[in-house]
């Protein structure tokens, strides 16, 4: 276990990270409960447990930088600055949702702050990330794109084609693998013959690192270096963040086949608790103020749910709009 350090991060940034991780956790647990109660339809893939990855990476990004996300995308969206009100409205399929109710959990996008969409297709994001990074290079605007995928997605052809092209053209893109050690119900060992996914970087001639994905500061540092490299025109980096999802592949805990001991062991390394420990030790956060953050976030989430539920459904006439640009 690495000891979290806080080099180069000021207390404001650290507190933002803390609050954002708590916001993701509260959002996800609320979304999971709403799904269990059948108040939102379809499938929700919860990000709880993996908060340090999205937050550690996105803490280095500007709104003009872009990300591509996955089916497990709520955390990326929140870390990139997404509005939880519009997110909940989308989960409810309502008109005020990010996609006016047309997309739902797996397709939330906010192009204005660089969120190029969650994705229902495993491996759907990487080629789009390459395109976004290409546009940044073409326009010489100094922007980068972060491509989030799961470990399972690295077995799709699209992932490999994307890394190769991005490496060849030295595109400003950072590939972040959220290695939660499962793709759906199959463990990583059943999906590939190498345990360290960052080793795959070697075959594209780019740097590859594995970081402790429960330590937001470690993720922040690895991402900072990769993003600086990308901005400097030195091309992509592959970051593997070792992490774990707290809930089942979809929904909450029902039917989760993963061993109870394994789940408990990962809970011992909770990313929010780890950061809280660091912040308390450095007197950046008192127990009392940590509590206050949690209460404020909880209220924010409750209000967002109310907003989402109260929002109207889209008009039926909207069924056939947005298919093309008119």
């Amino acid at each position: 276990m690495t000891t979290p350090t806080t080099t180069q991060l000021d207390s404001e940034q650290l507190l933002w990270m803390y609050r954002t991780m708590v916001r993701i956790r509260e959002f996800e647990e609320a979304a999971g409960r709403l799904a269990e109660q059948a108040r939102i339809p379809g499938a929700v893939h919860l990000y709880a447990g993996e908060e340090a990855v999205a937050v550690g990476v996105c803490s280095n990004l500007d709104p003009e930088d872009t990300i591509t996300s996955t089916h497990r995308g709520h955390g990326h969206c929140i870390a990139k600055g997404g509005d939880v009100k519009r997110m909940f409205a989308e989960l409810f399929g309502k008109a005020d949702g990010y996609c006016h109710g047309k997309g739902g959990s797996m397709h939330i996008a906010d192009l204005e702050i660089g969120i190029l969409g969650a994705n229902g297709i495993v491996g759907g994001g990487p080629p789009i990330a390459v395109g976004s990074a290409f546009a940044a290079k073409y326009k010489k605007n100094g922007r980068v794109c972060v491509c989030f995928t799961g470990d399972g997605a690295t077995n799709e052809g699209t992932w490999h084609e994307s890394l190769n092209l991005a490496a060849l053209w030295k595109l400003p893109v950072i590939f972040v693998i959220e290695n939660n050690h499962y793709g759906e119900f199959t463990p990583q060992s059943g999906q590939g013959a190498i345990p360290r996914l960052s080793d795959r970087a070697a075959s594209y001639g780019i740097p590859g690192v594995t970081v402790d994905g429960q330590d937001v500061v470690a993720v922040n540092e690895a991402a900072r270096e990769a993003i600086a490299r990308a901005r400097a025109g030195d091309g992509p980096t592959l970051i593997e963040a070792d992490t774990y999802r707290y809930y089942n592949h979809t929904g909450m805990s029902e039917g989760d086949p993963r061993p109870a001991e394994e789940r408990a062991a990962w809970r011992e390394r909770d990313p929010i608790t780890i950061l809280r420990g660091v912040l308390t030790e450095q007197a950046i956060l008192s127990g009392e103020s940590a509590e206050r953050v949690e209460q404020e976030v909880r209220r924010e989430i409750e209000e967002a749910i109310k907003f989402g539920e109260a929002s109207p459904y889209p008009e039926l006439s909207e069924l056939l709009t947005d298919v093309y640009t008119e």
């Binding site: 399929g93 109710g101 069924l319």
Partner: peptide, 16 residues
Amino acid sequence: GPWSPVPYSQPLEQEW
């Protein structure tokens, strides 16, 4: 089905 992808929102999906 009408000429659109399948929408998520329940009333729209039912209409589709």
